[in-house]
Computed example of a mutant assay.
Amino acid sequence: MSDAVAYAYAVVRHDVEGLDEALADVVGVAGRPVHLVPQGPGSGLAAVVSTVPAQDFQESALRRHLEDLDWLETVARAHHTVIERLSAHTTVLPLRLATVYLDEDRVRGALREDSEMFTRALDRLTGHIEWGVKIYVEPRAETAGPVDPAADDGLGVGRAYLRARRAQRHSRDEAHRAAHQAAERVEEIGEAVAVGHARHRVQQGQLASEPGENVVNDAYLVARENAEAFRAEILRAAEGLSGVRVDVTGPWAPYSFATLPGTEPRAPDQAP
């Protein structure tokens, strides 16, 4: 095996003016420069590629690295930097994180083999962007601080404690009902405006970096001309609802809508 392999970030149309220049100063995975690998004469497709050390991306090493969150985060950030630079210039079909080939001839072979599929996907995504939509539950009783059993109001410590716990549960239940209403509003807006809707797993544990409980973690594919109107409508979905927050992230390249056989691109705010 060579000491380097080809890391593929995305598939794009090769005939986009200025694309080579746009990638000229882009640094990809492992600090390597990025370049285009055209499918070949008569084709309008190209893969966006950089060479990376084989020792880090051969199968056995990659399995070990996939358990290393710091390594994954570094690779994911570089991967998404390349995708976002591309998306400022053209429609991008992102590939799965750590998609590697033995060499650039194998990359060209993959482009030839799946040329029709790649072309259809690029056609479908042209002129569209992705918005991430998250809904969080933030019940008031949970954010007001711990229960104080000494504040018994004449009821006794035990009864005061139980009353406070019931108030917490009631607040939580009310917030979840409100979140359900917000989710219904978001879906109605999506059905009216978006052309695609993808559901992601809610973020928990180490992935839950934002305050509150994440109960919806979705993505919507929206035409560029409707993008800002869609975002504004979504941000109003929680109006009048207590204990609920709606966040919108993006715009992103259409990560969530580029899934192809053998590829599983993740949204930029998902864990790799």
Rank of each mutant, 00 (worst) to 15 (best):
A253C: 02
A121R: 14
T91A: 12
H14I: 03
E213M: 02
D153R: 10
R112I: 14
R96V: 02
T143R: 14
L241K: 07
S209T: 12
L69F: 07
A198C: 04
L235V: 10
L125G: 12
L221W: 01
V100I: 11
V222W: 13
E73N: 05
P272G: 15
R96C: 01
A175T: 02
E228S: 15
G212H: 04
P38N: 10
P149N: 02
V52I: 09
D103K: 08
V16A: 10
R159M: 09
G109W: 10
V37A: 10
D269K: 08
V215I: 03
A182V: 07
P139Y: 04
R63V: 15
D70A: 13
L95N: 07
E184F: 14
G212C: 06
T143N: 04
L221M: 12
E239D: 13
A76F: 00
G154K: 05
G109M: 14
A267D: 00
R112M: 09
Q58K: 08
Q203Y: 06
P38R: 14
P268E: 07
Q58N: 11
T81D: 09
V16S: 04
Q206R: 11
V26S: 04
R236V: 03
G240M: 12
L235K: 14
L93V: 00
R140S: 15
A164N: 00
V222K: 14
V202I: 15
L93S: 03
G109H: 06
R165E: 11
E73Y: 01
R63T: 12
T81A: 06
A121V: 07
L97N: 02
H200V: 02
L155T: 05
L19Y: 03
V195D: 08
V5N: 05
V147W: 01
A4C: 10
P251S: 05
H170F: 07
Y255E: 08
R169E: 15
G212I: 01
H35V: 09
R201I: 00
V16H: 06
H79T: 01
E59L: 08
G240H: 09
T119H: 01
E138V: 12
D123Q: 07
E138T: 15
A179I: 11
V137K: 07
E225V: 15
A46V: 06
A10R: 03
G18N: 10
T91N: 00
E187N: 10
L19F: 01
A76Y: 03
L69W: 09
V92P: 00
A182G: 04
G145M: 10
A192Y: 13
